[in-house]
Design a protein around this nucleic acid. Structure first.
Lengths: 270, 270
DNA sequence: CTGGGCCCTGCCCCAAGGTCAGGGTCAACC
DNA sequence: GGTTGACCCTGACCTTGGGGCAGGGCCCAG
């Protein structure tokens, strides 16, 4: 009785059925209606939407393009275009997809590099350097601080990074320099007015004067019009936690300056 | 005069400078503040944010993870976690990335298939079939209608699709059947009460009775509890544009039925 | 007549910011 | 000393592709 022949069925399917057939949600279909991707079908006496096979076909077409990542805003134009533009549009979309794929692969590579410990954000050469440090007597804290410094240098003066790295590598080959640097790390925990700081600054400045190539100079900083800002940020990194370092820096600068070497950065205008 | 020594500079950089150094926009930094990814730095007398090297370091770390596609909501937890969980989280994120890459590649492949004309949405075997049709005397409109029908069948009864396709392939090998089908296409433009329709229906039913294997039966439809709905949708596709087809369908069904073959679909409850 | 399963519309929500509005600060230039 | 342009502040609304919920209607079965 309820289905005399085909009445009520060939009249069209409801939105829920159409959604199930096309593999989308009811909400998605209504969304497509609002965007004009699918014409609103006729309504039955209850105001329900009734979809026919043609509507369903259109829905499947839209769904396929949307599922392929085509922005909804472009789908109507693509489906309603003549075959030539249809093909051209698809090629365009495909190229965008390729770009996004490449980008994601680059991200994944970056993450794989990140995953090898906290040694994030640095190229392999820098990681190798950090790996050598514990064997030379540096503590884990030391390594962390150096890593932070390297990250900062790379972010602030990328063009000088390789050079800076090379200088550190050479420095690690000089055992006396290494031991001085390690004393500097210890000095971080000293009181700012500890007399050993003066002593250490003198020794370090002396060593720099003996072998000026060890001076960590940031090449490329001078070419920046905001070089001074970057320099200040770098040299004073860590000083908020370790006030003794601030004094150490000042003393070393003073020693070198009185010996005729000015490593502080001057703005070009000065 | 304006920069006595380091005052006003070591005080920190502004948000715009920090953004430039980290390669993000000012808005992005403020966004990160609101999400608690970066602590708010101190403010100067004008209420401007002033960033120090530690803030900048954190910004670069956050930026690197965000740039790698890690959701902002997870970045704080990852950066503040111990190294073990840090590594685990990165592996997790990396796997998600791999999944998205594979998905995008699948989309691109789909698009490449789509780009070979409007022959969208169908597997290669179906496309090959459509390609053969013009050589057998079918018009472009015919091919379009068949393509639409195939898309619908595939969407509505995917498990019966291959079988359906095979039946059509066999049908194309029978020249007499092909010519009958082509008359059916022409019949779409006849008046619904054209007497040739009766004649055509009789001839077609006769041919089906001679070789019942040509009857396009949709296997799998009976296993669906909504099979009737799907059947109605499929058999009546195109009838809104071509009313003559509706009559043709009815007549053929009647002929076959009176010969003892009932191809209409009955609901199990009936 | 009442419950459950559909359907309707309209509103707010997500990520990761972009954009605009309206207003304050700073340094320099005329 | 006024103005200009670059920078900063907050807050509110926009985006994509829908998800979720509220409040109400329709219909079928017990």
């Amino acid at each position: 009785m309820t289905n005399g022949s085909t009445d009520g069925i060939t009249d069209g399917i409801t939105i829920g059925q159409a959604a199930a057939f096309a593999g989308v949600t009811v909400k998605t279909i209504r969304h497509y209606h609002r965007y004009g991707l699918i014409d609103e079908p006729r309504r039955d006496s209850s105001g329900y939407r009734r979809y026919g096979s043609t509507d369903l076909l259109r829905l499947v077409q839209v769904r396929t393009l949307a599922g392929a990542g085509v922005p909804l805003a472009e789908i109507a134009a693509i489906l309603d275009a003549d075959p030539d533009r249809f093909a051209a549009a698809l090629i365009d979309v495909e190229q965008q997809l390729t770009g996004r794929i490449d980008e994601l692969i680059a991200r994944r590579d970056m993450l794989q590099r990140l995953a090898g410990g906290d040694r994030a954000l640095l190229p392999d050469r820098a990681c190798a350097l950090l790996d050598r440090m514990p064997g030379l007597g540096f503590t884990a804290d030391d390594v962390t601080t150096v890593r932070e410094a390297l990250v900062l240098v790379r972010a602030l003066v990328p063009e000088g990074f390789d050079n800076y790295l090379a200088q550190i590598e050479r420095g690690l080959g000089d055992p006396r320099y290494v031991s001085l640097i390690q004393r500097c790390w210890r000095a971080g925990d000293w009181e700012p007015d500890d007399p050993r700081i003066d002593e250490l600054a003198a020794a370090l400045a002396d060593h720099f004067l003996t072998d000026p190539s060890l001076l960590p100079v940031l090449t490329g900083l001078q070419d920046r019009d905001d070089g001074a800002i970057r320099y200040e940020l770098l040299t004073h990194h860590g000083e908020d936690q370790k006030p003794a370092w601030a004094r150490l820096t000042v003393l070393i600068e003073a020693h070198l300056c009185s010996a005729g070497i000015d490593i502080t950065y001057q703005t070009p205008a000065d």
